[in-house]
Simulated scan of single mutants.
Amino acid sequence: MTGLIDVHAHFVTDPYVRQAIAACHVHPDGMDRWPTWSVEAHLELMDRHGIQTAVLSMSSPGVHFGDDAAARRLAREVNEHAARLAADHPERFGFFASLPLPDVDGALTEIAYAVDDLGADGVVLMTNTGGTYLGDRRWEPVFAELDRRRTVVFLHPTSPVCWEQSALGRPRPMVEYIFDTARTVTDLVMSGVFVRHPDLPVIVPHCGGALPVLADRVNEFMTQFLGTQEAGRTSDAVAQLRRLHYDIAGPAFPRQVPALLELADLDRLLFGSDYCWTPPSVADSHIAAVDAVTPPVDGVTWRSLTTANARRLFPRLSR
């Protein structure tokens, strides 16, 4: 079997969890508890499923809990921890660096340090920061710098600010994550971020969330109803969405990947386990489903296909 490259894999540290709990994230995004994580347990899962490399990232709620200086320190702490993991296991782990948004200056400083000094494989951005979505003009310096560096951007959903009403008392990863992903990518499309930065490599998680079934609707509103008031009007939504990359973390089969393939080409799909937020037994079933389905082209498996795609996106992993 081809060794998988897992672009959607998480880690947590005890100091990070303590700071998050102190900031009232006792039940992160409505989940019962924080997951446990260790190098040994992660490598065991990887070995069991033939995962060669996992690109680690911090999940929601990110590193900013209200104080810019504290967020800068926490981002630096978790990024240096991830860099040590990658240095200790160079063929097994990479990482996406966390940024202390909404602190733009702090984020620009951390991009330079994480990429130039720590060797980060990219950055992770939450879908919103305090209710401000990624198409907002205040983040343009961040996207301009990431574009200049051709740094891979991995999007990760988080709770919307209205979750107390919209989640209906249920864990936000179940439904809110899926729609917050669609919300922020739609904002990026309609605000013209992908037009201004057409070569910026972006990974959308969880089979694109709700985007595959909303893409035509978004495109129709952008081209037929909104006129020139949206910067993204210069390029239709579907064309912009086709340029993005999509991981297939979560229950990708039997329904989500077929829907995604109506929007994205096969060379844009990447494997993701979502471990450690997805428990091992659930990750086992998701990976078994990936292995049980044959892609709609001859001579490849989802393993070989997504791994080849990942190696093109991350040249370091091909060396």
Rank of each mutant, 00 (worst) to 15 (best):
C276N: 10
F271T: 02
V202K: 03
V17S: 00
A144T: 15
L56Y: 04
H81N: 04
G135I: 10
R18W: 08
A41W: 00
L263V: 03
S166W: 01
E230C: 00
W302F: 12
V55G: 03
S60C: 14
D14K: 04
R217G: 10
C24D: 15
D291Q: 13
T2L: 07
C24E: 15
Y113I: 11
R311Q: 11
F143C: 04
T129E: 09
L56V: 05
L74E: 10
A87F: 03
V26Y: 12
P35T: 06
P173M: 00
A144H: 13
S57F: 07
V297Q: 03
A310F: 03
G135Q: 02
M58H: 09
G227T: 10
M31W: 07
D47G: 13
Y133V: 06
A264Q: 00
P198G: 13
D117E: 13
N128L: 10
T158V: 13
D136T: 08
D274V: 02
L74F: 12
P173G: 02
S38E: 02
D121S: 13
V282L: 14
A283W: 12
V26A: 12
L200S: 06
H81I: 02
L56K: 01
D180I: 04
A239T: 15
L101A: 02
A182C: 08
T2F: 09
S98H: 08
G208A: 04
P157H: 06
R196A: 10
E262Q: 13
V55Y: 07
V63I: 11
Y275V: 11
I111G: 06
A259R: 07
A283T: 14
P171G: 12
M126L: 15
F11E: 01
G299E: 08
P157Q: 03
P251Y: 12
V153F: 09
L85W: 10
P280D: 13
L108G: 07
S60A: 15
R76G: 11
H245C: 00
P102E: 03
V204L: 06
D121E: 15
W139T: 11
W163Y: 15
S59M: 01
S166M: 03
D298F: 14
D67I: 07
L241H: 08
F96G: 00
D187N: 15
T181P: 05
D274E: 06
L269Q: 11
A97M: 02
G192K: 05
P102N: 07
V104K: 05
H25F: 12
E110R: 11
T306A: 02
G209S: 12
D47E: 12
A182D: 08
A75H: 01
G119Q: 06
Q19V: 10
T228L: 07
F143V: 04
V78C: 02
V193K: 07
M126Y: 09
R138A: 04
L155Q: 01
F179M: 15
F271G: 02
T53A: 11
P35V: 06
R196H: 08
A259E: 06
A112V: 13
D116Y: 05
L317C: 07
D265R: 09
R311F: 03
Y113C: 14
P61T: 09
H42Y: 02
A288R: 05
L125I: 05
P198T: 04
D67M: 02
H81W: 09
L4A: 09
H156L: 09
H10W: 04
G169L: 09
P198L: 03
D199H: 00
T127I: 14
D136N: 10
P279V: 13
